[in-house]
Amino acid sequence: MRQVAHAFARTIRLLAAPKKRFTLPNSLTEYALRLSEDPAELARFQSSPGAARAAMDAAGLSAEHQETLLGGDQQRIGAALTADARTLVAEPMEAKPGDEPMEAPEDEPLEAPEEKPIEEPDVHEEPMEAKMETHQSAILA
């Protein structure tokens, strides 16, 4: 009986443990990710400006962001994404069953699971090619 209570307490703690994830459902970043990961969404976006606007309206994008994406100018898009990254914050996200193992092995300590390292967005960075070549640097060293 005590073991059952022990396991139940552990499960409750695991479920209640705050999990951090960058979430902002209507952000430019989220929509850009969807375009990149979902070929059907990209095809819809590229089929016509009207279809693209309808999809972006449904995604909750601002008029400014819609214009930026429709323009296809990657310098503007990159700048907008950098600005959007400043709005992305680590927010507690409700744990859902299945997200993490519900029950740890009995020999594990009872402490809440260790937080996975979550990186803060590099909001100070400008979009640029970040290759790490050496030829040029060595020549000029």
Binding site: L33, S36, L81, A85, K116, E119, E125, E129
Partner: peptide, 18 residues
């Protein structure tokens, strides 16, 4: 250098560090 790429990578593996 690209913020979208970093964001995507973080989702693919939460241990990601720039």
């Amino acid at each position: 250098g690209d913020p979208l790429a970093r964001h995507w990578l973080l989702r693919r593996n939460p241990s990601t560090e720039s």
